[in-house]
Write a protein that binds this DNA or RNA. Structure first.
Lengths: 207, 207, 207, 207
DNA sequence: CATGAATGAGTCTTCATTCAT
DNA sequence: CATGAATGAAGACTCATTCAT
């Protein structure tokens, strides 16, 4: 009985994820509004009705998809960072991790960026908060690393760790956007050293 | 006759701009899809039909609006930078200019950021190119400044000017996004020194 | 200016009524749920979109249609009763008026009866109240007639005028329903004398 | 074997009635269209599929439910009337029975009234006939009573028994509708004497 | 027979665009 | 050119019915 129950649950879980995968594919390719529920259904190889058995609305499907992928990427990154030897290594791992993630989930990253800016669902502050929380939590991790590094004398003390996080995120995002805007212009992966260098030492000529 | 013609032209130009202003207001507030053509018409105090006498479609109206504002901001920034005394002053002016611009056109900046990421009009590569061109042209200006500064011994020579532009843009955008995401969290204007410092010297402890 | 305004208004009024007529035709024939908005549109020879320019939803169109017809029938009946010479004449006019009305608006009468019973729009108590008010107001008129008649010694005094109204309405409705259920079984119009007799003297053998 | 067969049959009968009870509850509360098959299933504590093992469609389930309850009420009333001592007593019993029935099955009575008016299932004339037959058969019983009463000198002879039935039904229905429309306005049960009086002697002042 | 997930046809509603005045 | 009513294609969502387990 418990076995059969658990099998059903697992089955449902599997289908939920199939739908989320399909949703990610079409939503990231065409955006929320240009994607119809039927597009998702076709991609998922389920009927429209079935989608509605899993998600009560197009909007919630979309949000769930973003949450789902975000959570996974977050977990992946956390696992990577957990093994960092020291603050500098942490930084290298993060930058490299972001590069990898960007290659693997290019379209999702674009979508997420838009979503973070937009007020697509102005009435759904709850959801924005949820997503924002995940991100804030993540930045806290980065800030802690800068704080530790500063204590160890590796980073400056006249700049707050939070500002350093903004710099780190901004800088890596800047290169990322350039790459996303035209992936053929250059290889994002080749920018690893440049990003690290600029973040740590800046553009100024060392005196 | 030529006078009357010109007066007509000027009149038409005036109306075009009125409509573009109205479009900017509603599009930036509600986004492209949640804004109806009638919303724009009401805001512009013209009828729907009249809007179509000036712009052949909602999409082109939207695009024109973005171009229009982008061009103005670009002009404004160019004027500001033209008076720069030297590469470092140029950098300061740019960062401060971006801050000011962000305060004056918060919503537009958000919209533009989304638009740059999104492929809202995947079929309209022409438009994307046009906008991208304006931006590329702008980045060339920034790159030239870094090149000049490097020649003058103010900036590093082991990093390409183009990469420095990415760093500059990314770093300032990073703080900007943080502020746009929650304008009450801090004052963007207060970050001037931090951004400048981080860009020039990085997060690393000077040895 | 005032003329043109008024012409537009009249034009709009005319169209509104056209749509209401069309709505009455299809709604009374097929019922609310089996009628699609397109059915109404086709009948009205307007497009679906145009219907929505006049009425914000199928539900409100339906309700407006009922109100509209009800109001007209009410006016008609009031005009008829206004000329009554005395309470007995009033009674005769009312019964005859109801017969006529039933012949002219058979389907509407059926629909109204259903609607009075049903809670089709449970959330729209407002509307039910509005319709009920019109009817209550009408019953008051009937009650007043019985009161007057009782004072003049034509009607019993041991029964309240309100109960007499219930009897009048019930009795005429009873025959009406029988006729509506199967209009071929007999002629409703032929029942005038019987209804009047039964109402005034009852089924009991006069002693 | 015949026993086991019969047990199975009885079991099936029991379930059928359980489902009909559940159907009555939800259909009378929400109406045919606003009730989903799942609503009935939940109420009946069976699955949707099982419902379809007993009734081939929602429509037939609905019709069966009405027939089922109608038959029971009919039986109940017949039992009551069978014991009538004379035509006048019969009349009293009938009116009182209708009052009681109305209190016990208020919602069903409302539904039945609507159904009798509406052509919900215009294509299912068969069903309408079936229901109508039950009712017609019932009216015949009432007519017979009036006929007998007239022969005994209790009722008028210048009015057909059938018309008296219409009067009886209409009059009692009239008060019933008023009560159903707003059960708090008065007590239907209190109207027994008034209804009887009006039916027998009418509203006119006895001369 | 019992189950309930899957199906997809059917509806209401929106809104960009047109065009007669 | 200005107007705004008319249009109808398109899309989100529902729910009666089926069928594999």
């Amino acid at each position: 009985m418990s076995d059969s129950q658990s099998r059903k649950e697992r089955e449902r879980q599997r289908r939920t994820e199939e739908i989320l995968e399909a949703a990610e594919k079409v939503f990231t390719e065409k955006g929320f509004h240009r994607t119809t529920v039927e597009d998702v259904a076709v991609q998922a190889e389920y009927s429209v009705g079935t989608l509605y058995n899993f998600f009560p609305s197009k909007e919630l499907l979309y949000q769930s998809m973003i949450e789902h992928r975000f959570q996974r990427l977050s977990d992946q990154m956390n696992a990577l960072l957990a093994e960092a030897a020291d603050p500098m290594d942490f930084l290298r791992r993060y930058i490299q991790g972001k590069i990898d993630l960007c290659y693997q989930h290019e379209l999702f990253v674009k979508l997420y960026t838009q979503e973070r800016m937009g007020d697509r669902f102005a009435d759904s502050q709850l959801w924005k908060d949820k997503i924002e929380d995940l991100y804030v939590q993540f930045r806290r991790l980065l800030a802690d690393n800068f704080r530790r590094g500063a204590a160890e004398g590796r980073f400056r003390r006249d700049i707050t760790p939070e500002d350093m996080v903004s710099a780190l995120e901004g800088l890596t995002d800047g290169f990322m956007y350039d790459w996303l805007a035209d992936p053929n212009a250059f290889e994002y992966a080749d920018k690893f050293e440049v990003m690290f260098e600029l973040l740590v030492h800046g553009v100024g000529k060392p005196s």
